[in-house]
Simulated scan of single mutants.
Amino acid sequence: MNEILNESLIEKLTENEKRVYSYVTENIKSIENLKIKEIAKNTFTSSATVVRTAKKLGFKGYKELIYKIVNKKTILECNVIGQRFNIKNEEQLNEMIELIDNGKIMLYAEGLASAIVLYIYEKLLLAGKNVELFNSPVCRLMLNNHDVEVDYDAIIIVSRLGKGDISLKIAEYLKGLGSKVVLFTSNKKSKLYDSADLIFEYKEHSDGSYENYYPTSFYGYTILFFEELFKLYFEKKYSFMKKKSELVQSLEK
């Protein structure tokens, strides 16, 4: 939780305020649905104390504090995302969720990774997303014929070692047209890694010397990553829809 809140700010809280903070951080799963009066009652404090706690911690108010803690905890609880992949910050995941929600996406992979991309493709189609799956022959045609019109917000490439020449050519070509290159890999010493805009590096610490026939958990955990990502996506989507519905109902009264 220290990634959200400054430790020095927590130390400056009074005993009552620390009790509020402890209660909020220890009841992540239920806290989002509790009203401020309920927090005050459960901590034997007051609504004013709850608000004051939030402001002392650098937030505009109680709602912003809860939002930040709930969303950060959700990400930290995703073991596959937080423990298996190097994630720079929460914004990196939010950017990926935004691409899934509103972007036109192209998916590409070669070899063993093709099965992973096919799974992701089917998953996005079921969710009604704007996604296309390209195989090697189609991609070669696109690269060799620059008159072919392409307009993608992002291309997602799954490549454990990042060695595919075609993957690199596709990434550089679409990047030149304004597409964002998203890469899932375990090798940061590849040209494909250097050309990517949004990178999710699997913590395998591969230097690119391992062949794909050796045992690896990269492919399985990449699928699990997307499952956790879809979970975050739907949680945010339905949370927003719920709040919007409540606002409309309040305005109609």
Rank of each mutant, 00 (worst) to 15 (best):
I4P: 01
L5K: 02
L5V: 15
L5T: 12
N6C: 11
E7C: 05
S8L: 00
L13R: 10
T14Q: 04
E15V: 09
E17G: 05
V20T: 03
Y21V: 07
Y21A: 14
Y23F: 15
T25P: 00
S30E: 10
L34H: 08
K35S: 08
K41G: 10
N42S: 11
N42D: 12
F44D: 15
T45W: 02
A48L: 03
A48F: 02
K56E: 05
L57G: 06
F59N: 04
G61S: 09
G61P: 01
L65K: 05
I66A: 09
Y67G: 07
K68E: 14
V70D: 06
V80L: 08
R84V: 04
R84L: 05
I87V: 15
E91F: 04
E95W: 00
M96H: 03
I97A: 09
E98D: 13
D101K: 14
G103W: 01
M106E: 06
Y108I: 15
S114K: 12
Y119L: 09
Y121Q: 11
Y121R: 06
L124H: 04
G128A: 03
E132Q: 09
F134H: 09
N135R: 12
C139R: 05
M142T: 14
L143E: 02
D147F: 06
D151I: 00
D153P: 03
I156V: 14
V158Q: 04
G162K: 03
D165W: 00
I166A: 05
L168E: 07
A171D: 01
G176N: 12
G178L: 00
S179C: 06
K180L: 01
L183W: 08
F184K: 04
T185G: 06
T185V: 06
S186Q: 13
N187P: 02
K188S: 13
K188T: 11
A196S: 11
D197T: 01
I199M: 07
E201Y: 07
K203S: 14
E204Q: 13
Y210R: 15
E211T: 15
N212L: 06
Y213I: 13
S217W: 00
I223Y: 09
L224V: 13
F226C: 12
E227C: 04
E227W: 00
F230K: 09
F230C: 05
L232Q: 15
Y233W: 13
Y233C: 04
K236R: 15
Y238I: 12
F240P: 01
M241D: 10
K243S: 14
S245E: 13
S245K: 10
E246I: 04
L247R: 15
V248D: 14
V248E: 15
V248T: 10
E252L: 11
